[in-house]
């Protein structure tokens, strides 16, 4: 399968402190890579570097084999989108959902008004959101709904890769499960690549095709979901597995 994202030898620091050390991994088309690791291991920092919000000290990020430079073009920005952990602050509280989606699409894809209206309605339906979603402000939705709106915003600009940084960790179990199923279905429908960040191995096992384990800013092992959950290659991997109940 074709590689969509290659992360090569990334070193990155925040405030002079080195956080990421020689981080390497890749993601193929129609694949969900689960990035696991304890809190503070550098997962969110890795997401920031890939999206371009944080400049790495060295190393490169390649999208379909093309190196992304420091200053990204409009198209390059649109091709990597993100769903964040905290639903409460993911959407600008002053804009109706319709406007948030329309702005994103008109800026990234230069679509006509009619096309935007049609796509917005389709997305809202696909995300199983209420009919009137487009006419409401973010404040009036539940956490789970906000996360699905954030996912809709990410999808609206037709990205190649979506990074989801613990998008369900603040949601109730049943809401969480529905969101995970949606992510899985969308991936199949669109052949998307997804980097799914979580510290919850149950979630990773349920959702991902492959797993990468991060510890202290390094990727210490990567492998297929099956083989990782059967027999982790590293001591830390075994530790992680034994510390959670199997689901």
């Amino acid at each position: 399968m074709k590689n969509v994202l290659n992360v090569k030898n990334i070193y990155a620091s925040i405030g002079g402190k080195q956080i990421l050390k020689d981080v390497c991994f890749d993601i193929s088309e129609n694949e969900i890579l689960g990035l696991v690791g304890g809190s503070g291991s550098g997962k969110s920092t890795a997401a920031k570097v890939i999206t371009g919000l944080l400049k790495p000290d060295s190393g490169s990020i390649e999208l379909y084999g093309r190196k992304l430079s420091g200053k990204r073009s409009r198209k390059e920005c649109g091709s990597i989108q993100m769903v964040f952990q905290n639903p409460e602050s993911s959407l600008n509280p002053k804009y109706k959902i319709g406007k948030i989606l329309a702005d994103a699409m008109s800026f990234q894809l230069r679509l006509s008004r009619e096309e935007i209206a049609k796509r917005s309605a389709d997305l809202i339906r696909r995300m199983e959101l209420p009919e009137d979603t487009l006419y409401r402000y973010p404040g009036s939705f539940s956490g789970g709904q906000k996360q699905r709106i954030a996912l809709a915003r990410a999808l609206s600009v037709e990205p190649d890769l979506i990074i989801a940084d613990e998008p369900t960790s603040s949601l109730d179990v049943s809401v969480q499960l529905r969101m995970l199923d949606l992510i899985k279905e969308i991936k199949e429908e669109r052949g998307l690549s997804i980097l799914f960040i979580s510290h919850d191995l149950g979630v990773i096992n349920y959702l991902c095709d492959r797993v990468a384990v991060m510890k202290d800013g390094r990727i210490i092992e990567t492998g297929d979901r099956g083989s990782f959950f059967e027999a982790p290659k590293t001591e830390y991997g075994r530790e992680l597995l034994s510390s959670v109940p199997r689901i």
């Binding site: 999206t51 371009g52 919000l53 990204r72 073009s73 409009r74 390059e76 920005c77 649109g78 990597i80 989108q81 993100m82 964040f84 952990q85 905290n86 602050s89 993911s90 959407l91 600008n92 509280p93 002053k94 804009y95 702005d103 994103a104 800026f107 990234q108 954030a150 915003r153 600009v157």
Partner: peptide, 26 residues
């Protein structure tokens, strides 16, 4: 550093646009 500002950056909006149309209303 809120997520909605980061989301705006990810969409490729310019700094001026983010200040005038994302932050200003707030």
């Amino acid at each position: 550093n809120t997520e909605w500002v980061e989301a705006a950056k990810l969409l490729g909006y310019s700094d001026l646009r983010i200040i005038a149309f994302e932050i200003f209303p707030n």
